[in-house]
Design a protein around this nucleic acid. Structure first.
Lengths: 147, 147
DNA sequence: TATTGTTATACTCTATAACTATA
DNA sequence: TATAGTTATAGAGTATAACAATA
């Protein structure tokens, strides 16, 4: 077993700082919601359905790191808002497939969520190199989450 | 008013992707907690006090983007765990200053939080250039949150 | 009067447990 | 038996409202 190298100490620092930064921006973004807007979880589920097409509750839950019961609640809210619709699985009577409705697609197209607008305005104040770093980081952060 | 330029569309994409990525990693990290460990909010408050020294409830609330009442709850939990202690403000009888106790300092030194360990392990699987990108991004994300 | 902090209460999101239906 | 989903209940974190003490 080696003593920690300088690069390992740097990595520990990076992990700590990234964890704190993620938490801080998550809390900052959380307060940017206008009345009647989709919650962060609802928006994440909608975005996932847009990218991946129809999915079951269980698969959506795995993708977003929540329990199936929690995703069930989120999907019930989206269904009641008319943004997703359910249909039976063609071969497995237990499963239910969820897909975006036309209204759901329109909701994804509409570029007016307060959280997104706030983040966009904040990023506009950065210089191009920093924006590029954040775009690259977004892909890496997703990769980390799914690893 | 100009039509959106290519670079503006790129920026919109970056904002959307970053927002989704932050949410996804926040949920992924949230499930990595061992029984008895500090919550993410408690850890953030502790880290803030370590960096900035003694602070009032209101200042801590502003730093972490929650209401003073919410930070009051977090600080009460930390106080009960013996990790922070309160003392009166020297000149303003309304304010209360919170600072780390020896146990709080020790808790910050201890490098064993499940969330941090999970993130560290995930980052170890990245190549050095990607780690560097994430370290730079952590600083930018903090800057965004505070902008 | 304005501000800091506390107490009481409620809301959102997610979790665990128990249940039904299907495989 | 095992799995997908539902229903009921509970917990964590944060919010709003009402209040007390101090500036």
């Amino acid at each position: 077993m080696d003593l920690p190298s300088d690069s390992h100490l740097l990595l520990e620092t990076a992990a700590t700082e990234l964890s704190l930064a993620i938490g801080q921006l998550a809390r900052r973004l959380r307060i940017e919601v206008n009345p009647g807007e989709l919650s962060w979880s609802q928006n994440a589920a909608l975005a996932r359905l847009e990218k991946a097409g129809a999915m079951t509750t269980a698969d959506l839950a795995r993708s977003e790191f929540v329990k199936p019961q929690s995703m069930g609640t989120t999907l019930a809210d989206l269904e009641q808002a008319g943004l997703v619709q359910r249909r039976p699985h063609p071969t497995d009577g237990r499963q239910v497939l969820f897909a975006l409705t036309d209204a759901g697609i329109a909701a994804r197209r509409k570029r007016s969520l307060a959280r997104r607008e706030w983040l966009l305005a904040a990023m506009e104040r950065l210089d191009p190199a920093d924006r590029q770093t954040l775009l690259a980081a977004a892909a890496l952060i997703k990769q980390l989450a799914e690893s």
